[in-house]
Amino acid sequence: MAEFIHENIEPYFNYWVYVIIMMIGLWALIAKNNLIKKLIGLSIFQTAIILFYVSMGVKEEATIPILDHHGHEVAASEHRLFVEEDGQKPAEGDHAQAEHHQAEDHDDHATNPDLIANPLPHVLMLTAIVVGVATLGVALSISQMIFKEFGSLEENEILEEIKASASDG
């Protein structure tokens, strides 16, 4: 068992976690009776996908995909500009130092790509987050209409109501 965990789960820990979270969401989506709980399940489901994508972009010991300006050969005027702006956010200084050394070795490729996380999944997930918010907003507004018309958000009660109105005319 321990061996199995060591070989199959440890290197893929995030991927296991994302599947588990996603399945929690899917279960809630199908099994829950309350429409709002279904929506919560839907949100969990979508969030798990975000975790999956972001996990893909992770590199061991890499930092966020924001470059350090000093590492580059920039024109003097631009350099001043960056120095000014760097002054406003000293928090990034730590990893900037590390990259600085990397960068000096080869000016053309100013950064060691192994030390910078993959930016693409972040970009994609920014889109997916926005889509998730938009879907949730529309779904909530529809559920509000449902409550207005059926007086309930419980699925079985709504279905009974539909059946009743269809049979007695």
Binding site: N8, F13, V19, S55, M56, G57, E60, P113
Partner: peptide, 16 residues
């Protein structure tokens, strides 16, 4: 999942 490149691998296809 067992087919994936290991988590945090800088040489995974997605990153490299």
């Amino acid at each position: 999942v067992s087919d994936f490149p290991a988590f945090g691998d800088p040489n995974s296809p997605a990153s490299a």
